[in-house]
Computed example of a mutant assay.
Amino acid sequence: MAEEQRSGDKGFLHNTVHVDVKDYYGRVLKKTSDLKSNACVAPAQPIPGFIRQALQKVHPEVTARYYGCGLVVPECLEGCRILDLGSGSGRDCYMLSQLVGEKGHVTGIDMTEDQLEVARTYVDYHMQKFGFNKPNVSFVQGYIESLTEAGLANNSFDIIISNCVVNLSPDKKRVLAEAYNVLKDGGELYFSDVYSSGRLTEEIKHHKVLWGECLGGALWWEDLLRLAEEVGFSTPRLVTASVITVDNKDLQAILGDFKFVSATYRLFKVPKGNTKPRQVIYNGTITGVEDRFRFDCQYTFKAGEVVEVDGEVANILTHSRFGEDFTFQHLGGLCGPCGFKPKAGIVDPFELVFELEKQGPGSATGGCCSTKSAACCK
């Protein structure tokens, strides 16, 4: 009976959070300027020209209701099937639809009717703007914790992206599990979100404004590592991170000493195994990054250069859409840097931000927003 009660309480909490978030993003927020903190606003970073061009073609009303915290544009998008978790008014979907091309497809899922109404209103507008003969974007109403219930098939997406939405979910493990299920083998979850420096207090978690502002539901970054492992994903690879500041004095008083970052991670659905460190050579075959491919904050691959990678990165590169872009050798097969040791896979995003701040302005750029996408999905 006690277990049933706890389960019922948990379900009630989840329903309450969903209602509050729907209300906040459907009725309270009408445009980006209505936000009370900068947590859910994209950091001021240089945006590559090809992405700026794609964003300029998105209808102003769609852009005005954008509440993301990063730029979710991984490499190799052309021809891919992409799912956007918490797609909102559709800004990222319409931007990515140009990059996947007519042979690709972007699906957005969101629970907020008002947001979906805006997104669906401009499907024909954008297809004409992009010069496409038929829509390559669709929007589904549903919860990111229940993708299959919303009609999304297992093993059907090459890439899943999400922009400052997972923190709004009351059940983040289920979000990751559902994402894992609908990804194809070798697929990737590439997402930006808000993370905290520690596990938040109950007062913060139950504060409606802080939750709506993407802070109250922020994961402690170490919990992301644990949840990803439990679900089956590879260890999350940190791409980039930037500081979140809270200027609202009332909100800051409640938050106390907790700190927050906006961070982009990439997680892969690849086979488990005791893959050993390997030497790899980037072939320079990814369009737009022929000279240099920045995989994450630790590994940047220069074309033709021998790089020794840890076992997990070797496993990811082998089994993901990047497999054909690398030449693989066992250790000792080629002459790599003497005494070089593979980098540890786990990086504290707060330490990364500290290092980037020491390096000066512009250091936090790169990763998801540094390169043009290429034709990698088959």
Rank of each mutant, 00 (worst) to 15 (best):
V21R: 14
A344D: 13
Q252I: 02
P60T: 07
Q279M: 12
R91H: 10
F301Q: 06
S162R: 08
L168C: 05
F191G: 03
Q329I: 01
D34M: 07
S169M: 02
N181K: 14
G362Y: 00
Q98G: 03
C164R: 01
D92V: 12
N155K: 06
C40E: 01
Y24P: 03
S363Q: 07
R278G: 00
L227Q: 05
G217F: 03
D9N: 04
K10D: 15
L116C: 03
I286W: 08
E324H: 12
L176V: 03
A39T: 07
H206F: 06
C376H: 09
G336P: 07
H126F: 12
I286A: 15
I144V: 13
T287R: 06
A241Q: 06
F130C: 14
L224Y: 06
P60L: 05
K249T: 10
Y122D: 01
E229F: 11
N167L: 10
D20C: 02
E178R: 05
A150P: 10
G8Y: 06
G304M: 03
V307E: 04
K378L: 13
G333W: 05
K341G: 00
E230Y: 00
E202P: 01
A177S: 15
R294E: 15
A39W: 10
Y282P: 00
V306T: 04
D250R: 13
T264N: 13
R226H: 12
V306Q: 00
A364S: 11
T300Q: 00
P361D: 08
A263Y: 04
I160P: 02
P48D: 11
H206N: 11
E312I: 02
F157E: 04
E149K: 15
N248H: 12
P342C: 04
K36W: 13
N283I: 02
R27S: 14
V175S: 07
F12W: 05
K184W: 07
S262G: 15
I346F: 13
R174C: 08
W211Y: 13
T327F: 05
K358W: 03
C93R: 00
